[in-house]
Structures are given as structure tokens and as C-alpha cells.
């Protein structure tokens, strides 16, 4: 057990053999590059074809639209990295947002405590998901499909046919969401902060390395004594907490909190993660890629409106983008597997 707490060991498990970190780093860079190149292509095409695309204001609009999606997708990515899924992310956002907004009416003095409340609710809901998946070993699709309905149902029951409008919640909600520091919108800053913190945690902490290790090969991780059950559970708790935060910021952004807040977001969020190069099999992907994935989705939406294209083409183009991203990802991971094989041989002979 203790042996697994040395980060170098977990890295070794993620990529058996020597030189694991640099190879993994390379693979991540390749994936990351894939999204980045796609994004640049997309921006080039739209810049040429749409009049008002390449302006500072428009870039700001795109990044702003991607902000909350990025946060939610980072939470999802934590879970996906372990080789699992969270389909309840939209419902978690909705329930956390609704309860928080409701509490804010009665206790407006809580201020930042309200953000903490949303995060806590999200973490609690994530903990339940993690319990089902990590401890009860229920396949994550099944477990979170169930909790998706349960959390959404609870939101309806809690709301009892009501909605919370922007004039009921504390006015700083709106100011928070609409405000900016040095010209950068607060929500974008929040998203950047979440991405940075999670990226650092994943890269430089034991827990972060273990997440990759468990996701790459859970049996090996277990064999080497990693507390894989707890790692998966923690990924769900952290993912839920981030979803709770995303729910709160979403509510602050749109002002009116309804029972269907973030309904259907599980697919958007998953799309952002997949386009961002997070392997749906777990074990590889970066949160910066996820952020770019969210920006890709926001760019498609923005660019097509600027091109005056009827909205339903978006569905088609987004779908194709996802398939493309997956194909690139598969090509990369095949090369990785090939590298792994060589490395394994090296490890055996060494």
C-alpha cells in the first residue's frame, strides 16, 4: 500500500518500464496537439468565411461561452481518466444549483459560503456515485444513468413546480458572472483556475498520478498495491464537487434557476472531454485538452451563427467533430500501445 504512494511508482505503473513520464508526456502532447490543430483549422476557416469572426470581442464571446462547460468537463474528465463515466453531471449541476439558489434567498448573508455549499452538495452527490461504482462495483454507465434520474427527480421534488428568478437571489450572483478583471471575464478566470489547479494536481501529486495509473490498467494498479477503490471514489467526489461549482456558476450566469438547469449537459460535457483528447478508456488525457475541447464546441456554435447557417447543421458538424477527435485519439493510442509493448520488453530484460 505504502509503496504505491511514491509518485514514481505510480508513474511506473501507468507506463510500465523506464522513462514512463517522458513517454506519457509525449503522448499527451500529441493528443493535445490534435485538438489544438483542429481548433486552429476551425478558426482559420471561420475567419476566412465569416465577416466578424476574427475580432477581440468575438474571441472573448467564444471563450466566455466555453467557460462553464470547461469547468463541468474538467470534473467529468477526472472520472473518465479512471476509466469510468459520470452521466449524472447535468443533474448534479442542477440539484446543486437549485438548492444553493434556494438557500441564498433565505440566507443571503452566506456569501462565499453559498459557493462552498454548491461544491459540497456536488461532492456529496459525487460521493454517492463513487460509492456505487468504486465500492459496489456497478458499471459506471448503469450507476450514473440511475443517479442521473434520481438527482433530477430530487430537484423536481425539491422545487415543487417553482423556479427561482434573478430578482430573488443575491445581486452579487449576477455581478460575479458578468464581471471581469483586467478585461477577462470572471467566469473565464474561474475556468482557468479550475483547469490550472486540476492540471497541477494531476501532474504533481501522488493522487493525480494514481488516477492515471488506475485508469490505464486497474488490475496492474491493484497488483502494485494502489488503493484503486479509494482513488476511483475520490475521482467521483472531486468530479462531483467541480460539477457543483459549475452548477453554481451556471446559475449565476443565467440568473433564472429552473428545474431543468443543465439538463442534457452530460453529452455536451462528454463531447468536450472526448474532443479534448481524453481517452474514453481512461488513463490518458489532459485537462488543458478538455478546455480546448470546450472551446471547439463553443467555436462551432459561434462560427455557424456568424455564417448565418441554420442551427441544426451544428448537430451534424459537432457529431462529425467528435468522430474525428475519436479517430485521432485512437491513432495516437495505438502508437502508445506499440510503445508500451517495446517498453515492456525493455522492462523484462532489464
Amino acid at each position: 500500500m505504502t509503496a504505491g504512494l511514491d509518485p514514481r511508482h505510480s508513474v511506473g505503473i501507468a507506463a510500465p518500464g523506464t522513462g514512463g513520464r517522458s513517454r506519457i508526456g509525449m503522448a499527451l502532447r500529441v493528443r493535445f496537439l490534435g485538438v489544438a490543430i483542429f481548433l486552429v483549422l476551425l478558426w482559420t476557416v471561420f475567419s476566412i468565411s465569416a465577416d466578424n469572426f476574427l475580432t477581440g470581442g468575438n474571441a472573448r464571446a467564444i471563450v466566455f461561452a466555453a467557460a462553464v462547460l470547461t469547468i463541468a468537463a474538467v470534473g467529468e474528465a477526472l472520472v473518465v481518466l479512471t476509466g469510468n463515466l459520470d452521466l449524472s453531471v447535468g443533474s448534479t449541476m442542477g440539484l446543486a444549483a437549485y438548492i444553493t439558489a434556494d438557500v441564498s434567498i433565505g440566507l443571503p448573508g452566506l456569501n462565499v459560503g453559498l459557493v462552498a455549499l454548491a461544491v459540497l452538495i456536488g461532492a456529496a452527490l459525487g460521493a454517492l456515485n463513487g460509492l456505487l461504482v468504486a465500492w459496489l462495483k456497478i458499471p459506471s454507465i448503469v450507476a450514473t444513468l440511475g443517479t442521473m434520474s434520481i438527482y433530477r427527480g430530487l430537484t423536481y421534488v425539491y422545487a415543487d413546480g417553482q423556479q427561482i428568478t434573478s430578482n430573488e437571489v443575491p445581486s452579487w450572483f449576477g455581478r460575479l458572472a458578468a464581471g471581469a478583471v483586467l478585461g477577462i471575464p470572471n467566469l473565464v478566470l474561474a475556468a482557468a483556475a479550475v483547469v490550472a489547479v486540476v492540471a497541477l494536481v494531476l501532474r504533481h501529486t501522488v493522487a493525480g498520478r494514481m488516477l492515471y495509473a488506475v485508469g490505464s490498467n486497474i488490475e496492474a494498479a491493484r497488483f502494485f498495491g494502489l488503493p484503486s477503490t479509494r482513488v476511483v471514489w475520490l475521482a467521483y467526489v472531486a468530479g462531483g464537487a467541480i460539477a457543483g461549482l459549475a452548477g453554481f456558476l451556471y446559475a449565476a450566469q443565467v440568473g433564472t434557476v429552473t428545474v431543468v438547469l443543465a439538463d442534457g449537459w452530460e453529452l455536451q460535457v462528454l463531447a468536450a472531454a472526448v474532443i479534448g483528447g481524453v481517452s474514453i478508456w481512461g488513463g490518458s488525457g489532459s485537462v488543458i485538452g478538455v478546455a480546448l475541447g470546450a472551446v471547439v464546441l463553443a467555436t462551432i456554435q459561434n462560427g455557424l451563427i456568424l455564417l448565418h447557417v441554420q442551427a441544426y447543421w451544428q448537430l451534424l458538424i459537432q457529431g462529425v467533430a467528435i468522430a474525428l477527435a475519436v479517430a485521432v485519439d485512437a491513432t495516437v493510442s495505438r502508437r502508445e500501445v506499440a510503445m508500451n509493448r517495446t517498453r515492456r520488453r525493455v522492462a523484462v530484460t532489464a
Binding site: N52, F53, A61, Y250, Q253, L261, Q301, I305, L306
Partner: peptide, 17 residues
């Protein structure tokens, strides 16, 4: 959908200054 409406509005303002 709130968020979609929000983003569509922002994009429309970009598309038509």
C-alpha cells in the same frame, strides 16, 4: 435552454454588430 439562449444571444451580437 438558458445557457444555449445566452450563448446564442452573445453570438448574434457578434454576428451583427
Amino acid at each position: 435552454d438558458d445557457a444555449t439562449s445566452y450563448n446564442v444571444a452573445v453570438n448574434l451580437m457578434q454576428a451583427h454588430p
